[in-house]
Structures are given as structure tokens and as C-alpha cells.
Amino acid sequence: MKGVVFNLLEESVTRSFGPNVWDDLIEASGVSGAYTSLGNYPDEEIEALVAAASAALSLDRNAVLRWFGHTAIPVLAELYPSFFEGVADARTFVEGVNNIIHAEVRKLYPGAACPHFRLHAAPSGDLVMDYLSAREMCALAQGFVEGVAAWYMQPVEFRHLQCKQHGHDHCTFAMTWAGEAQRSVAA
């Protein structure tokens, strides 16, 4: 996992609960806690941190990841304002995840293993997204989408049509933005 994700997690926790809570999570999970955005760290470390948060907050893993995604977006907007510049609405931002966001990430961090999202518009106008990743972090994806919705103040209804955690070979989401007119999407 890229160091930037650990940095985002640290910042999200610190802003919401104060620096002491981050210290506690590090101690409880037994990780080093020294993360730089240039580095790469084992997936086990983020899982250990999520597990520690889950225990501390009495929330399940998915709930912690979803909270993290949601909370990380304003931090992301502060650290990387260029990601949001010129993007008019939440749906456009989500649609650009492969070509804009992850393309930028690869420029900054060559070799980053970004998940791939397959996007298409359903006949209903919903944006349908297949999440293809070995990490089973669909809840983080949901959190990010909801965080973006909040950032643009365009509430989204996020449905999990199928989930790897329920035995499917990949996750599929459907997203409807409230008050959104029927539109065609070039996914």
C-alpha cells in the first residue's frame, strides 16, 4: 500500500480524534508508524491499523474503511487540489478515477498498484462500477465516493450490487446522485 494512504489515514484520524488516538492506534496495532508518501508499506500494516480502529471504535472493518474514505476526501483536496480543479461535479470526479486520479498517482509514484474500476452507465442512468482489486477494500471505495459527494454537496445513493466478500469474483456498485437529471455517460 502506498505511503500516501497511511498519511491520509493518519491525517483523518488526527483531525477527527486528535493525535493521541493515532498514537494509540499505532501502539495497539504494533506497526512502526513511520510513513512517508514516497514509500511503499505492507498491506498488513493498514489492515492492522484498521483492525485496531475497529476495536477502539467498536465498528466492523467495512465501517472503518467507509469512514476513512469519507473523511479522507477533504484532506486529499487540501494536499492535491489539482485533482479537483476543473472537475464540475461529483459524478464527473468518480468517472475520472481511472484516467485522471490514478494517472496522476502513477506520475507521482511510479509503480503504484492502483485498483481498476470498470465504469458504464446503466439504462436507468445510474453509474455502474466494477471494482477489481485483490485487497477487498470495496468499503473504502464507497467511502471515497460518499466523501466526494459530500465535497461537491451532491448526495449519492451507493448500492453494492455484488461483493467479493459475499463470494462473487468481484464487487459491483451502482451510484445515483440525488436530483440528477437523466444523462448519458461516456464511461
Binding site: 493521541n20 498514537d23 499505532i26 512502526s32 513511520a34 512517508t36 508518501s37 514516497l38 514509500g39
Partner: peptide, 21 residues
Amino acid sequence: RRLQRRLDRERAARFEAEAIA
């Protein structure tokens, strides 16, 4: 002690970042 640990983490992160850079 808490601040000391936090500082240690920051220093470790900085060394690592420098090495990577």
C-alpha cells in the same frame, strides 16, 4: 514520552523519504 515517540516516527519517516528520494 508520547511526543518523543511521535518525533522518532517523524525522523524515521524523513530518513526513509530521503533515502527513497
